[in-house]
Amino acid sequence: MLLYRSLLSCCLVFALSGPAMAQSPSTLDKVKTSGAITIAYREASLPFSYLGADAQPTGFGWDICGRIVDQVRRVIGRSDLVVRTQAITAQNRIPLLTNGTVDIECGSTTNNAERNKQVAFSINYFYTGTRFLVRADSPVRSVADLKGRKVVSTTGTSNLQVLRKLNADRGLGFDLISAKDHAESALLVQQGRADAFGMDDILLYGVRASAVNPASLAVVGETIQVEPYAIMLRKDDPAFKKLVDDTLKDLIRTGEFTQLYKKWFESPIPPKGINLNAPMSEELRANLRNLSDQPAQ
């Protein structure tokens, strides 16, 4: 009987260590073997990740991704590492990361508790809160003014959940609809088919700056639920997360992070040379000292 139990235990251990429990290779092993790393970018999340006048990805997050790729090359010993790009949306960014299509996303993704169940995040590198884009001639100037109106946000964003909660908590009774991306959300406002576009305020400034007539739009309302942005990575990959975090720490320590911030948030940026005039928030200044990857709840 003892021999039988021992054999049974061995069989169970063997079964559990088979394909069902096989782990995917780490990101560093994956890119070293393949000779390529795939970076996810957003097409219209100005100034974090967007297409420039040459139709190539650019932005604050994109620059930081470039520094991370440089470090990956050094660590894996492959100066010939090829950088591939993949456009993503708010809806598909997590699936494309978890299934291995992309290896890293440096964009405008909120680091929150729900997403941490599926992916991992770096040290937080920006803080923002939900506000509203309206037509300049709109009477909407505060959250209270949304009562009974039509509000749009982008599918797959945390802002939709924030706005649903706001609507319920304050009994505003606004009609909340969704659009496929930020550009479509803004278009609905410009065409008068929605009264306000609820989104992270910094992205709204970018949308406004990219409009044919920026003066026709305004960013209004009190900030709702300040949340952090961070670089999105696959879960359970401590070596790659350490590399990404260490790269960010080095950028912060040397002052290059602050230089990049001034380049993208406090200087004229492509494609129209508009300055967002968005000084660093107190939350971000604090996190440059604390170096936390704490998610929003």
Rank of each mutant, 00 (worst) to 15 (best):
M1N: 05
L2S: 11
L2K: 12
L2H: 13
G18C: 11
A20N: 07
A22L: 11
S24H: 10
S24K: 13
K30A: 14
V31L: 10
V31P: 12
T33Q: 15
A36D: 05
A40N: 09
Y41K: 01
F48G: 05
Q56V: 05
P57A: 06
F60C: 12
G61K: 03
G61A: 10
W62Q: 12
D63W: 08
I64S: 06
C65R: 03
R67P: 05
G77N: 02
S79M: 09
L81C: 01
A87N: 08
I88R: 09
A90V: 00
T98F: 11
G100P: 03
D103V: 04
S108I: 07
N111S: 10
R115Y: 13
K117I: 13
F121V: 02
Y125H: 15
T128D: 15
R141K: 15
R141Y: 01
L160T: 14
V162C: 12
K165R: 15
L166T: 01
N167P: 07
D169M: 03
G171W: 06
L172N: 01
D181L: 09
A183E: 13
Q190C: 10
A194L: 06
D195S: 00
A196D: 00
M199P: 04
D201L: 07
L203R: 04
Y205C: 09
R208Y: 02
N213W: 13
P214M: 09
G221V: 02
V226P: 15
L233M: 14
R234H: 04
K235W: 04
K235R: 15
P238M: 06
K242W: 00
V244K: 08
D246E: 09
D250A: 11
E256I: 05
Q259E: 15
L260E: 11
E266S: 09
I269P: 10
N275L: 04
L284V: 03
L284K: 04
N287K: 02
R289H: 12
N290F: 08
A296E: 10
